[in-house]
């Protein structure tokens, strides 16, 4: 009962299909986290009464509770209130909202990093707040945090495996199913680990490049 190359080759296509689901899940979730995170960051920065505090609580809560339990909650509790999504859709929304709490903090650091002179200049030009945000602050803020966001994307890719627990047929689920139908867990889980490693390691090298590209001029 040691490693079998033959079995490993046989299950690889199934694992790759699972990997493809993992990639889709991650990218869609990332999209949600980028949008929601930005909204949360701007609301918090703008210090709108009540709304800002709610956003702070949201960030704290999302970061203070396990992704797995959040996923269980969304999957098992929400249908009782009439919200029934498939496990894939639930997974995308849960991981997207979970990471929006992190991206919100990333954006915040980016917004705070925009020099005060930029705000002053915008005021001096009497730009409306909307244009100040859209044309001056956000383009600079987002640009400076692109590498950090890249790292969160990689982190999300790895974390998405947790969502197999609510039935998303991703790489982890595929490995588990293969393991249980063949009664061998060694090859499926070793290969799943390797696939995760290859992709996230390659991606992290890519992010390092981004860091150089978007590094501040000084």
């Amino acid at each position: 009962m040691i490693w079998s190359n033959e079995f490993a080759l046989e299950i690889l296509p199934v694992l790759l299909r699972g990997l493809w689901v993992t990639v889709q899940l991650t990218l869609l979730g990332f999209l949600i986290s980028l949008v929601v995170g930005l909204v949360v960051a701007v609301v918090r920065f703008a210090k709108i009464p009540v709304l800002s505090q709610l956003c702070t609580l949201y960030v704290l809560f999302m970061r203070g509770t396990p992704l797995l339990v959040q996923a269980y909650f969304a999957f098992y509790v929400l249908p009782a209130y009439g919200v029934t999504l498939s496990s894939f859709a639930t997974g995308v929304v849960v991981i997207g909202l979970n990471y929006s709490a992190y991206t919100a903090e990333v954006y915040r650091s980016g917004i705070e990093g925009v020099a005060t002179g930029q705000w002053e200049a915008a005021t001096a030009l009497s730009l409306p707040p909307r244009s100040t945000w859209n044309r001056v602050v956000l383009p600079q803020a987002v640009r400076s945090v692109i590498p950090v966001l890249g790292n969160y994307l990689i982190q999300m890719f790895k974390d998405s495996a947790v969502l197999s627990a609510i039935g998303v047929i991703d790489l982890m689920r595929a490995a588990n199913t293969l393991g249980s139908s063949s009664f061998r867990y060694l090859e499926p889980f070793t290969l799943a680990g390797l696939l995760f490693l290859i992709i996230s390691y390659t991606a992290s090298i890519g992010v390092k490049r981004l860091e150089h590209r978007y590094a501040p001029a000084h």
Partner: peptide, 15 residues
């Protein structure tokens, strides 16, 4: 850092 913790957990536990 490059692999999922849940995969590591299953690997340590079952493999």
């Amino acid at each position: 850092r490059g692999t999922s913790m849940i995969v590591q957990l299953f690997w340590f536990f079952y493999a």
